[in-house]
């Protein structure tokens, strides 16, 4: 269940082959798609209209199409907006019914209480720690292995690859996995959230394919100059692979930020709770100790809030780093899925 959580594209199917050429303009995502098609096939610049779109007239179909897409976008944004407003609403407004673009009375009581209780800082620290350390370790381990496996003359190369790939399709399952973590003594340590996800086979295969696609001449000439294999790896191969490493690193980060199930299984101490777990507990347990603690803090009138706005505020505190960076980073993610997930 949680096996592929930290893989390069969490939503994507497990799969292998990808001859990665990140600099290739065809990977540039659909935003570049029209330009790319124009350049490649006809050598003419912009002005190549999308697909079958007839030139000229704006017909009924176009009107319906724009309306539908706009409605879809509203349906994606509205649930977030509604919750955001409830998190900032006065107790009466937070429980109000129906569409309201803004509360009639604002209140930051829910946020005040969340920050004053202090748990949120612990949760943030744990999440950032697991994301940064987990991503760093994973990049080091997977790219080292990927480089080793990318050597085409390596004896037993196929056997070793099979050893890795098999784990993408079969595993011990939830209970044996849990017992392993328990027997290793990792329960209630932050490492239970980091170490099991370090060796991502999926990311390793993507990297290996990328390394295989690199220009062999580059390495040969360095070898002639007397560079050893580690020098080649660190001075040549990794620097030219920066784009793909960055994409995989970003994916890893988001995977760690959103991971909750491992935390639910392996950590019980509040001092180890990550953001997603704290949120999960607050949302799913009606009488949760988290909520009781927050409610007990609304001693005076200025700190009055409803469980609804507390939940809403906690959701936004959890996702705000993703929301804030998303518009700038999404094109890298798109690149990631095109390199990684689809092999045809």
């Amino acid at each position: 269940m949680e096996k592929s959580r930290l893989d390069a594209s969490p939503g994507a199917m497990p799969g292998g082959a990808a001859d990665v050429r990140p600099s290739d303009s065809a990977l540039g995502g659909s935003a570049d798609a029209d330009r790319d098609r124009g350049d490649r096939n006809r050598g003419r610049g912009g002005g190549n209209d999308g697909g079958s779109a007839a030139l000229g007239r704006f017909g009924l179909f176009d009107a319906l199409n724009y309306a539908f897409l706009a409605a879809l976008c509203v349906s994606m944004i509205y649930p977030f907006w509604d919750l955001l407003m409830r998190s900032f609403a006065s107790p009466a407004d937070s429980m109000s019914v129906g569409f309201k673009l803004m509360p009639s009375q604002w209140s930051v009581a829910a946020y005040r209480v969340i920050f004053e209780s202090g748990d949120i800082f612990v949760n943030y620290w744990n999440t950032i720690f697991r994301a940064v350390v987990g991503t760093g370790l994973s990049l080091v381990v997977t790219s080292a292995c990927a480089y080793g496996l990318s050597r085409r003359t390596l004896p037993f190369r196929n056997g070793i690859t099979l050893f890795f790939i098999f784990t993408m399709f079969f595993g011990g399952g939830l209970i044996p996995g849990y017992m392993l973590i328990r027997d290793l003594g990792l329960i209630d340590t932050i490492w239970s959230l980091i170490v099991p996800g370090v060796a991502s086979v999926y990311n390793m295969i993507i990297l290996r394919n990328n390394f295989q696609g690199l220009d062999a001449g580059l390495e040969e000439s360095a070898m002639l100059d007397g560079a050893n294999k580690f020098t080649i790896l660190f001075r040549i191969v990794l620097p030219v692979s920066k784009p793909i490493l960055a994409t995989i690193g970003l994916w890893c980060m988001v995977g760690h930020w959103n991971a909750w199930f491992d935390a639910l299984l392996y950590t019980n101490k509040p001092s180890l709770s990550v953001l997603q777990l704290a949120l999960h507990n607050l949302l799913t347990r009606n009488q949760s100790s988290e909520m009781q603690k927050l409610l007990s803090m609304s001693s005076d009138a200025s700190k009055l809030f409803t469980p609804m706005s507390a939940k809403a505020a906690q959701i936004f505190v959890t996702i705000v780093p993703i929301l804030a960076t998303y518009p700038f980073l999404q094109k890298y993610f798109v690149k990631g899925i095109l390199v990684g997930s689809f092999k045809g």
């Binding site: 082959a17 990977l27 690859t161 394919n209 092999k343």
Partner: peptide
């Protein structure tokens, strides 16, 4: 699996 198909 090393195979070929890039997005390109």
């Amino acid at each position: 699996i090393a195979g070929p198909a890039s997005a390109r």
